[in-house]
Simulated scan of single mutants.
Amino acid sequence: MTTGVLWATVVLASLACLALKIAGHLVPEHWLADPRVARLTSLVTVALLASLVVTQTVGDGQGLTVDARLPALAVAAVALALRAPFVLVVVLAAATAAGLRALGWG
């Protein structure tokens, strides 16, 4: 891919994002007040966040991989289910990944 094509792609993607943002401000407020819309937007947010977590956890750019990140995510999920403070969740997940990597897994 040439540098010109790459920059053209970046500029077009940026303009598309700007157009979506502007379109969001032009949506009538009464459409957004509908409870179904509020519920749908919260579900879309959760789905996008979940997809990002899964992609970053088991993706390596070319395929799927299972390494220390997956058990660390499981530990974080259990800690969140037990209502642990967020800082503790992060520390537990990081310690799990570090411990498994120190043992040679991932």
Rank of each mutant, 00 (worst) to 15 (best):
T2G: 11
T2I: 00
G4W: 05
G4V: 02
G4I: 06
G4N: 13
V5W: 14
V5P: 01
V5D: 10
W7N: 09
W7Y: 15
W7V: 08
A8D: 03
V10M: 08
V10Y: 10
V11R: 06
L12Q: 04
L12C: 15
A13Y: 09
A13F: 11
A13Q: 10
L15N: 03
L15Q: 07
A16G: 05
C17W: 11
C17F: 09
C17H: 10
L18C: 05
L18P: 10
L20M: 06
K21Q: 08
I22G: 10
A23W: 08
A23T: 02
A23Y: 10
G24T: 07
G24H: 06
G24Y: 09
G24R: 11
G24M: 03
V27W: 03
P28R: 08
P28I: 01
P28L: 05
E29R: 10
E29Y: 03
H30L: 04
H30Y: 00
H30R: 13
W31V: 05
L32T: 06
L32F: 11
D34P: 00
D34C: 03
D34M: 09
D34A: 06
R36K: 12
V37D: 12
V37F: 10
A38E: 13
L40S: 09
L43G: 14
V44I: 05
V44E: 04
V44T: 07
T45N: 06
V46W: 13
V46T: 13
A47K: 08
L49F: 15
A50D: 15
A50I: 03
S51M: 13
S51I: 00
L52M: 14
V53R: 03
V54P: 02
V54N: 00
T55C: 11
T57G: 09
T57I: 03
T57P: 00
D60I: 02
Q62Y: 14
Q62T: 10
Q62N: 12
L64H: 10
L64K: 04
L64P: 07
T65A: 04
T65N: 05
T65E: 15
V66P: 03
V66T: 04
V66L: 10
D67P: 05
A68M: 08
A68R: 02
A68H: 08
P71F: 01
A72P: 01
L73D: 06
L73C: 08
L73A: 12
L73K: 08
V75S: 00
V75M: 04
V75P: 04
V75R: 01
A76Q: 03
A77C: 09
A79H: 12
L80D: 01
L80V: 05
A81K: 12
A81L: 12
L82M: 14
R83M: 11
R83Y: 12
A84G: 00
P85Y: 11
F86I: 15
F86N: 02
F86A: 11
V87E: 02
V89F: 12
V91Y: 15
V91Q: 11
L92V: 04
L92D: 02
A93Q: 12
A93F: 11
A94G: 14
A95G: 11
A95N: 13
A97D: 06
L100E: 01
L100V: 07
G104R: 07
G104K: 12
G104W: 03
W105S: 00
G106P: 06
